[in-house]
Design a protein around this nucleic acid. Structure first.
Lengths: 252, 252
DNA sequence: GCTACTATCTGGTATATACCAGTTGGCGCA
DNA sequence: TGCGCCAACTGGTATATACCAGATAGTAGC
């Protein structure tokens, strides 16, 4: 049936806009409950499916957080995270007054070739026969899951790593226990969604926005010491990067 | 009615998974047409709305691209963009064999206070009475819109800027015409969606994934010379950042 | 006052249907 | 051969309805 009143703007966008305005104005504060889909439908004279589409707009923009069988709530502001100091997520959180934590989901040592993932060996510059530590962790801030980290480290460089305490920062461990100092780090960032596996680990929806980060860290001699795949919750984190001219202005 | 057959997995996710597998396997190559929603519905014995939900899964993950009233097509691979050399998007595209271009949507000079956007003056460290150039451009690669750029530059530092050719890189202009060398740049990145305005400018859907970048660039004396808000198409671009230890390892 | 049950509410999924307005490709005509 | 028209097709929007199962709050019983 389309636009009953709205000059070409679909109803679900119109209602979504009204809701967004109520949130931005502060009428609906962070943490507050948004009217239920059925209520919105009644209020605006639209069907529930259309009201749901309106709420979806806000949910996909991170303005609002859906909690299954409970309700829809206004989202809280994002935590800032530096892209220049990826090494120390724990430290970063702490300096922002957020208590860091980590839950180890997986910690094992296997031959790279058995991973069924040729990228790991390729990125680390090792053969499939060489053994790597696989560490999968959920990093938390104030108990809330923030990042799903998947780390691959050559066993040759970090013997006995899995016997260490893996609930803190890996980079601190590298330096203090193994005397290896991360010198260079190449990161590739991509907008993404969490996906089913990550969603379960982070306790969120598979369709929640995320930033996928692939990272290769090298020591001073240019030797790869870590390959990582991170999924950062896009609804809870923003990323800050500071560059200075020396880094990129040398070519001109 | 829920799971007719599928062990707890909703039908739209099951069908979405089948489609995703066909794309990843290469059976459906980039640019190829995906079966229409009505065809998918018939093939899998589901309603069209459910088939649509399945396609939505892939679209939101950037696996496919919807073209209104035309069809759904497998997406092409993303263009890499360095976060360390944001200054020269044109150069970056060129070095990757992509022809850079820019369309100027807006170019005017106003007092910062009249913008109705206190952040601009605040970020540039100027008073509301000072005049700023406002330059809004769509940056393209091979004719395809990639980034919507919103630049704010103090007129005091760049007199007559708007008479220059704005279809190239602004940073080249700064250096060559005004002798101002960008020395430091702070960028804030956030997952986002395009939104209605940006979607129209970039010729895409308002709900397409995007990376929002806010940037303050300073010269060697620490003076802000540019404030920018960029919206990068998340479906066409990925971002690469290289950091070296000097940048972040000094504190320890 | 505390616990246990229960009716209600919630978002999630799914169907069947309808209309709209560009896109597309084929067919006929000049 | 080339142009223009038109029917079929496409995704976008919208409704009305239904069932599910976990969350939640109120109430009855102890």
């Amino acid at each position: 049936m389309g636009d009953v009143a709205g000059g070409g703007v679909p109803a679900y966008r119109r209602v979504g806009g009204v809701l967004a305005a109520r949130i931005r104005s502060g009428e609906l504060a962070p943490g507050a409950r948004v009217p239920s889909e059925r209520e919105l439908a009644a209020e605006h004279g639209i069907s529930r499916m259309t009201a749901r589409a309106a709420v979806d707009l806000l949910a996909r923009r991170g303005l609002v957080e859906r909690r299954e069988r409970s309700g829809v709530f206004v989202a809280r502001p994002k935590i800032e995270q530096s892209l220049d100091t990826v090494a120390g997520l724990s430290d970063q959180l702490e300096s922002r007054g957020v208590a860091p934590g980590a839950e180890v989901l997986e910690a094992r040592t296997v031959r790279a070739g058995t991973l069924g993932d040729a990228e790991v060996a390729s990125r680390l510059g090792i053969s499939g026969a060489e053994r790597v530590h696989v560490v999968v962790r959920v990093r938390t801030g104030d108990g809330e899951p923030l990042v799903l980290e998947e780390n691959y480290l050559p066993e040759r460089l970090f013997p006995g790593l899995l016997r260490e305490d893996l609930t803190g920062g890996l980079y601190a461990l590298m330096r203090e226990r193994y005397g290896l100092f991360p010198a260079r780090s190449r990161q590739e960032l991509e907008t993404s969604l969490l996906g089913p596996g990550a969603a379960e680990a982070l306790g969120t929806s598979p369709d929640a926005p995320a930033l996928r980060v692939e990272r290769v860290t090298r020591d001073a001699r240019g030797r790869p010491i870590e390959f990582a795949r991170d999924l950062h919750r896009g609804d809870r984190l923003r990323f800050v990067s500071e560059v200075s001219a020396e880094d990129w202005d040398v070519g001109l």
